[in-house]
């Protein structure tokens, strides 16, 4: 049984359990967001996806990422009030993450170029907006190597208790998903340092280029069921080898 709701006066259908943001994006409505990711449960942290919702005769503002679609729900994605609240939230985020190009650009689109609030100039995880997306993705991948540390204005994200995690495999998915690009990874020719822990790379058997960390390889072997030697050679070497085998058949 599908649900009917309206988004900007257009009637759309949704399945029970679907969230308003997901439905809206699927139907082609643009709603900005920073902390939303389809692979993890939404938590409504960044507050940028605010929309106006009317339900049961009552109109209010709500984050769309974690609001379930309901029969008869009326959603408006862009009103002066929605824009004003998004602008305020972006001004707050700008104080938290002044170094993030993405936050600055999003704020600019809402007419916010500077922030009236004191900038959070904390060297540990500067520009982090505490959306916990890295943490949620890490947990989704089965590593659970990140957590929130401290409370209030001392809250930050890192390995539990701020000490290097035994469960981290150095996959750097946290860096890939971070909306403000604040996860710091240092790669050398043989090692990767992330969240205070240094990993050794598996090096390509042919050319010695780094492929992935030993721990990441172990994790993949345990979960994907692919043969062990799938991770021993770097991508360019594998492609060159495949091209050679290919050529032997053609000529």
């Amino acid at each position: 049984m599908s649900i009917r709701l309206t988004i900007d006066d257009v009637e759309v259908k949704a399945e029970p359990g679907e969230y308003v943001l997901a439905v809206a994006r699927r139907e082609g409505f643009a709603i900005p967001s920073l902390c939303h990711h389809e692979s993890v449960a939404p938590i409504g942290a960044c507050r940028v996806c605010l929309v106006q919702v009317t339900f049961g005769g009552k109109t209010t503002l709500s984050t769309s990422c974690n609001m379930l679609a309901e029969e008869g729900l009326q959603v408006v994605t862009d009103t002066p009030e929605v824009r004003a609240h998004r602008a305020m939230n972006l001004e707050l985020l700008l104080a938290r993450a002044p170094g993030s190009a993405r936050v600055r650009e999003m704020a600019r689109q809402y007419g916010v170029t500077r922030t009236r609030f004191p900038q959070v100039a904390e060297s540990a995880l500067a520009n982090c907006i505490l959306c916990e997306l890295c943490m949620r993705v890490c947990s989704r991948l089965g590593h659970d190597a990140l957590s929130a540390i401290g409370r209030g204005d001392k809250k930050r994200i890192g390995p539990p208790f701020g000490t290097p995690s035994e469960r981290c495999v150095g996959c750097a998915s946290c860096r890939s998903v971070c909306p403000t690009a604040c996860v710091f990874v240092r790669d050398t020719a043989t090692s990767r340092t992330i969240w205070g822990k240094t990993f050794e790379f598996v090096l390509c058997k042919n050319c010695g280029a780094p492929v992935l960390t030993r721990e990441h390889r172990q994790h993949a072997l345990a979960h994907a069921g692919l043969p062990e030697d799938y991770y021993d050679v770097c991508e360019p070497c594998k492609q060159a080898d495949a091209a050679g085998r290919f050529a032997n058949v053609v000529w």
Partner: peptide, 12 residues
């Protein structure tokens, strides 16, 4: 999520 395992695993 950008873990890049697919890139590492593709045999070609």
């Amino acid at each position: 999520v950008g873990c890049s395992l697919c890139e590492k695993a593709c045999p070609f």
